Amino acid sequence: MSEESPVLVDVADGIMVITLNRPAAKNAVNKALAEGVAAAIDQLESSPDIHVAILTGAGGTFCSGMDLKGFVRGETPMIAGRGFAGLCEYRCAKPLIAAVEGYALAGGFELAISCDLIVASDASKFGIPEVKRGLAAAAGGLVKLPKQIPQRIAKEWALTGDFVSAGRAYELGLINQVVAAGTALEGAKALAAKIAANGPLAVAKSKEVVDNAQDWTSDVMFAKQNEIVLPVMTSEDAIEGATAFAEKRAPVWKGR
């Protein structure tokens, strides 16, 4: 994509970096940005050579949410089947890491919590301040957040619209790592490299189980898990992993 694109995509060593690229607007989400994110996710899902993706923002800010000027004009930054910003109602088969600098607010916050993992700058701020504008955090803040942190805390954030520090979000288990300002992408790449080194089939199926496990009752959870992971145990990658360990070499994954 060109430098003027609202979304930039770079792929190296099995890792895709998706950059929200409207820095003058604090990476606020308009229709074009939503379409760009959806297209990047399509590329991620369809390419066997890409194992993990990082979502970040240009200009020292992750995302300030919906472009309110566009909203007033009647523009809707939604993609059918994907939701807000082309991602918030979609679950990727491959891991997605948010690298957060600056603000992740409103829809930007909902984008971050739609990722599997979050690496955040110690100067970053999170929040769902929609109520301060007479709106509601309907892109995931009201339904996903209570599944990721204690319900009473999620309710407080939703009803007050207050901003939250990276430190507080880390204490609550919402984010995985807090790093020095300006190094969130670097930290996310290091985390992504660890994931990309593993068997892609095993990673995808492990993610699928964890994504769904909270909705399974205890009497069915192992049966549901086994439906997903048993094929991994008999895969070519499983044999390769064991063989590579015995031969003291790095495995060569086939994803099957």
Rank of each mutant, 00 (worst) to 15 (best):
A192C: 09
M221N: 08
K205D: 03
T234L: 04
T243F: 04
S218H: 13
K189D: 04
I228H: 01
N212Q: 13
V203S: 09
D162F: 04
L185G: 09
G187K: 12
N226G: 10
A169F: 04
T217I: 05
Q214F: 11
V164L: 10
V229M: 09
I239L: 07
T243C: 01
F222T: 14
K189N: 07
M233N: 05
N198G: 12
K224N: 14
L172Y: 11
M221P: 00
P231M: 07
V210Y: 11
K207G: 01
L230V: 09
V179C: 13
M221Q: 07
M233I: 01
E171V: 00
A192L: 13
G199L: 01
F163W: 07
N212E: 11
V164I: 15
S206T: 15
A197T: 03
A196C: 03
N198C: 14
D219G: 00
V210K: 06
E186N: 12
A190I: 09
S206R: 04
D219A: 05
V203A: 10
S206D: 08
V209S: 06
F222R: 15
G182V: 11
E186L: 13
A166D: 03
K224E: 15
A180K: 10
A166Y: 02
L201R: 04
G199C: 15
G187C: 10
E236I: 02
W216I: 03
I175W: 01
V220E: 14
V209K: 06
K207Q: 02
A196L: 03
N212R: 12
V164H: 05
A242M: 15
V203G: 10
D237R: 06
G182Y: 12
S218C: 09
P200W: 13
G199R: 07
P200D: 10
D215P: 05
D219I: 05
D215N: 14
E208D: 09
V164A: 04
K207F: 09
L191N: 08
P200Y: 13
L201F: 05
V164G: 03
A223M: 08
A190P: 00
Y170N: 01
V229E: 02
A180C: 08
V232I: 02
E227L: 13
A181L: 06
A184W: 08
K207H: 06
N176I: 00
K189A: 09
E171F: 05
A197I: 07
S165T: 15
A166V: 02
T183N: 10
A202P: 03
G173Q: 10
G241D: 03
K205H: 07
E186K: 14
E208H: 07
L201A: 06
K207S: 02
M233H: 04
E208K: 12
A238F: 12
A181R: 13
D237G: 02
A196G: 05
L230G: 00
N226P: 03
N176A: 05
V209I: 15
V178D: 02
K224C: 11
D237N: 02
L185P: 08
A169W: 04
G187V: 11
A190M: 10
K224Q: 15
T217C: 03
V203T: 13
L174M: 10
L172F: 11
N212K: 14
